[in-house]
Design a protein around this nucleic acid. Sequence first.
DNA 1: TTGTAGGCGTTATCAG
DNA 2: CTGATAACGCCTACAA
Lengths: 327, 327
Amino acid sequence: MATIKDVANQAGVSVATVSRVLNGNGYVHEDTRSKVEQSIRELNYTPNEVARSLYKRKSKLIGLLLPDIMNPYFPQLARGVEDEMQENDYRLIFGNSDESKKKEMEYIQTFVQNNVVGVISSTNDPDADMYTGLNIPVVFLDRTSSDRPSVYADGRQGGRIAAEEIVRRGSKAVTVIQGPADVRPAQERFEGAVEVLEQQAAAYQVLKTTSFSLTDAEEFAQKVFSEYPDTDGIIASNDIMASAVVKEAFRLGKRVPEDVQIIGFDDILLSRLLAPPLSTIHQPAYEMGREAARLLIGLIEGQRIEKSNIEFSVEFIERQTTRKVES
Amino acid sequence: MATIKDVANQAGVSVATVSRVLNGNGYVHEDTRSKVEQSIRELNYTPNEVARSLYKRKSKLIGLLLPDIMNPYFPQLARGVEDEMQENDYRLIFGNSDESKKKEMEYIQTFVQNNVVGVISSTNDPDADMYTGLNIPVVFLDRTSSDRPSVYADGRQGGRIAAEEIVRRGSKAVTVIQGPADVRPAQERFEGAVEVLEQQAAAYQVLKTTSFSLTDAEEFAQKVFSEYPDTDGIIASNDIMASAVVKEAFRLGKRVPEDVQIIGFDDILLSRLLAPPLSTIHQPAYEMGREAARLLIGLIEGQRIEKSNIEFSVEFIERQTTRKVES
DNA sequence: TTGTAGGCGTTATCAG
DNA sequence: CTGATAACGCCTACAA
């Protein structure tokens, strides 16, 4: 790799001059500039970001920490973040935390070791020392934080809507699947749903689950019907769970939505490819990722941020795992 | 952030000594060592990787370039890579190329600018200058390259198997969906399928598609049946396409697999959650990602590599979009 | 308008 | 066993 020195030699000037044309600051004679630019081209020179980063004490890198990229919801967030970042010349160091504090800490550490200028994280504990102690901007994505910048969907409202819709469409024995206890958005959805069910004095039961993994989803789906054989409406903790439930319902010969209605959460891309397509609560994941990136960039570049808690609203997507009803 | 100098001051030694205890090389008295270690703890010091990287001219970073993390196949690759890398203390700079040469080049450039020690890339053109000119190891993932390190599944064989299975199970008017022309693995599958269909003198037609995006998939799915209304067996270019076809078949009142059989490709996680679950050609994506990472690490750390083209075999997963048949 | 030199945080070399 | 110090590639005073 050619260095700035090589370019300087080639062009017969000092490194300072090359640096000036590189960064477009300071005065440099037009002739000198073109000479330098030519040498840059000839040598195929690109500045070493590491040296830059060392000198300036900051890089063009952003740390992105997501629970698990294999969960279909997160790629959309990730892609939103990536697109916005790449358009603004930032790059991503990416890690999966598996909702584990240990992995999270390790990644945060390597982020700072690599001089990242900002972090986007889906954590369950925004108030942990590792974040409060950071002296670079952090945006929490898909996680709520009242006092720190965050971008999230209104999960509680989503839970409420799901409950309202399923009751309105005639389910009399609702099962609410409660996602992993330590995953905050899952709990919010759950609470929202229960809130409405209580209000309406509807009959409901709860099934606790401990993971979002696909294999577990199938097990939990079986449990739904074995423990509550007469349930006729299921509010799932996400679309994976919902899909597993749909599948299990079919396996048991139940008709969807005639015998049992099912509502998911997230609206992952494949939900509408299911047969029947899944009714679900839509989160604008890609756009949330982009927004988190925008917010972070604003923070990094020192714009005055008027609003740093951005809540996206969610929306019921009526497809075919819920019954039709007059509006 | 504390620097090595701060630690040295605290401990009353020189930076050289601190560096020695940090890296565990050179002699250092036991008492000195513990003094230093204590200062490290007290100051909560971690070495600046950027400075390290500058001096050593190499980092602990790997560049990972995938076409599109929103396509459900790639997160599995990505996660495999990430897990293996993180266990070996490497971190990932991640980018989406969208199969675009331009984005690809931009990323490769920032990879080298950031002193990455290796690259894993899903490219359609392993022989492009940007790769041949790199002086760091590159592993091509999900893409074939005869003369350069690569990890991929036997797509041609997959295509063959799909064709054999669908014919064997009684389809008489097969439609082969041909994926985007510039995506190599898609073409290999296609060629494999056609090869067998020709051999067996089976009746078949081809539907060309131009993208793997979800919305397009639905359009193409409609086209399948509008252009070939009497088709009774469809070999899809991947599971997304296959799901869209299943859905469209249902919409048209066709029974699957009685009226029309469908075989996908990839075996993404959700394939088995579909109703009916999708028969498909399984690629061990997660394991492929891990293997690519292992291979790359080997290359980086200068092991003598005996075999640098790793082909994974694929396998037919019989689920319920194909008919049962005596074996 | 251009060049010199010091410093960013580490590591490695070479004296002591 | 330990300490100066040069060097990694770049940027920015400051001088010229």
